[in-house]
Amino acid sequence: MPSDPPGFELPLRLFLGFRVLIDGVHAELARQGHPDLRPMHGFVFQAIGPEGTTAAELGRRLGISKQAAGKTIDSLEQLGYVERGSDPRDARRKVIRLTQRGVDSLVRSARIFDDLRARWAEALGEERLRALETDLRKVTPSEVFRLDIPGWFGGY
């Protein structure tokens, strides 16, 4: 009878599964015209949200410094994914918003994630994949979108 794998293997396998999916999304995004996007950018786009946000708030949401958020904004602005503008309610406040290119990358990534999930369902079987997803919901917090992962990993 085989022995149980060591406890440290579970988080590594979960992380490897995450990595396989994220690498797959980014490889396909690159093929579809978004070669400059990096895994953390998806967290940034989600933290910016549909209404936009400030650099300070972006930093808080991501768990990184305002300076790191500012550098990220500068980079994404140069790539055409975000733009800075004035807040209509307070002209002193600069709001970062996604451009059409940023929104396009999110729409494409959602479709690609669906395609990758379908491939996993084909490889594992739909019932087993659904059981895995159900089991992961039992042992993880209900809040799916933890945007502070960049800060948790040590920022960038």
Rank of each mutant, 00 (worst) to 15 (best):
Asp4Val: 02
Lys138Ile: 02
Asp74Lys: 14
Pro2Cys: 07
Arg19Gln: 01
Arg117His: 06
Pro141Ile: 01
Gly125Val: 11
Gly17Glu: 01
Gly63Gln: 04
Asp74Pro: 11
Ala131Gln: 11
Ile149Val: 13
Glu83Tyr: 10
Ser3Leu: 08
Leu79Tyr: 06
Thr140Asn: 14
Glu9Tyr: 14
Arg92Pro: 04
Val139Ser: 07
Met1Cys: 05
Ala30Lys: 13
Asp135Met: 14
Asp23Leu: 11
Gln78Gly: 04
Ala118His: 09
Ser109Asp: 01
Arg13Glu: 13
Phe43Val: 01
Arg97Lys: 15
Pro150Phe: 00
Pro5Cys: 07
Arg101Pro: 01
Thr54Cys: 00
Ile73Cys: 01
Asp23Glu: 13
Ser86Trp: 06
Ser105Tyr: 05
Ala110His: 06
Ala30Asn: 05
Ile48Phe: 10
Ala69Arg: 08
Ser75Ile: 03
Glu28Tyr: 02
Leu10Ile: 10
Ser86Thr: 05
Arg97Cys: 10
Asp135Ser: 15
His26Thr: 00
Val95Leu: 12
Lys138Phe: 08
Ala110Phe: 08
Asp36Leu: 00
Val103Met: 05
Leu12Ala: 03
His26Phe: 14
Glu51Cys: 01
Ile112Arg: 04
Arg13Gly: 03
Pro88Gln: 12
Val103Ile: 13
Tyr81Asp: 07
Pro11Ile: 08
Ile22Met: 14
Asp104Thr: 08
Ser105His: 03
Ser109Ile: 01
Asp36Gly: 01
Gly7Val: 10
Trp120Cys: 11
Phe145Gln: 13
Pro6Met: 08
Pro2His: 10
Arg89Val: 02
Leu79Gly: 07
Ala56Tyr: 09
Asp148Asn: 09
Glu143Thr: 14
Thr53Phe: 08
Met1Arg: 01
Phe153Ser: 07
Asp87Thr: 04
Leu79Lys: 09
His34Leu: 02
Pro88Glu: 08
Arg97Ser: 14
Glu83Lys: 11
Leu10Lys: 03
Ala55Ile: 13
Val20Tyr: 15
Ser86Met: 07
Asp4Glu: 02
Leu106Trp: 02
Glu83Asp: 11
Glu28Thr: 12
Glu9Ile: 15
Glu9Asn: 09
Gly102Tyr: 02
Thr99Cys: 02
Phe153Gln: 09
Phe15Ala: 14
Gly80Ser: 11
Gly52His: 10
Ser75Met: 09
His41Thr: 09
Gly24Glu: 11
Pro150Asn: 05
Gln67Val: 15
Gly70Asp: 00
Arg108Ser: 14
